[in-house]
Simulated assay, not measured.
Amino acid sequence: MGVAVKVSVVLPAKNEAEGLRRTLPALKQALPEAQIIVVDDGSTDETGTVARGLGATVLGSPYSMGNGAAIKRGARAASGDVLVFMDADGQHDPGHIALLLERIEAGYDMAVGARDGAGQANVGRGLANGLYNRLASWMTGHQVLDLTSGFRAVRAERFREFLHLLPNGFSYPTTSTMAFFRSAYPVAYVPIRVGKRVGTSSHIRPLRDGLRFLLIIFKIATLYSPLKLFIPASAAFFTLGLGYYAYTYSTMGRFTNMSTLLFSAAVIIFLIGLVSEQITGLTFLASRNEPGQRG
Rank of each mutant, 00 (worst) to 15 (best):
P32G: 02
P32V: 07
P32F: 13
P32K: 12
P32N: 06
E33F: 03
A34E: 11
A34V: 02
A34K: 03
Q35D: 04
I36H: 04
I36K: 07
I36T: 14
I37T: 07
V38K: 04
V38I: 09
V38L: 09
V39A: 09
V39M: 07
V39W: 04
V39P: 12
V39Q: 07
D40Y: 09
D40Q: 06
D40E: 10
D40W: 07
D41T: 04
D41K: 00
G42I: 03
G42S: 01
S43N: 09
T44A: 15
T44K: 14
T44D: 15
T44L: 15
D45K: 11
D45M: 04
D45C: 13
D45V: 12
D45W: 03
E46M: 11
E46Q: 12
E46N: 11
T47M: 09
T47V: 05
G48F: 04
G48A: 14
T49C: 05
T49V: 13
T49A: 15
T49Y: 01
T49I: 07
T49M: 14
V50H: 04
V50R: 00
V50A: 07
V50K: 00
A51G: 06
A51P: 12
R52K: 14
R52P: 00
G53E: 10
L54G: 14
L54D: 11
L54S: 11
L54V: 13
L54N: 14
G55S: 07
G55N: 11
G55F: 05
A56W: 13
T57M: 15
T57E: 13
V58C: 12
V58R: 02
V58W: 03
V58G: 08
L59G: 01
G60M: 00
G60I: 01
G60P: 00
S61N: 06
Y63H: 10
S64I: 06
M65V: 15
G66V: 01
G66A: 09
N67P: 02
N67F: 12
N67Q: 11
G68I: 05
G68A: 07
G68Q: 08
G68C: 08
G68W: 05
A69M: 12
A70I: 09
A70T: 10
A70E: 11
A70Y: 13
A70W: 09
I71F: 14
K72Q: 09
R73S: 07
R73T: 08
R73N: 03
G74E: 11
G74K: 12
R76A: 14
A77Y: 00
A78P: 02
A78N: 00
S79L: 05
S79T: 12
G80V: 02
G80R: 07
G80D: 01
D81A: 14
D81Q: 09
V82A: 12
V82G: 08
V82I: 14
V82E: 08
L83V: 10
L83N: 08
L83E: 10
V84W: 02
V84N: 08
V84A: 09
F85H: 14
F85N: 14
F85M: 15
F85W: 13
F85G: 00
M86S: 04
M86Y: 04
M86V: 07
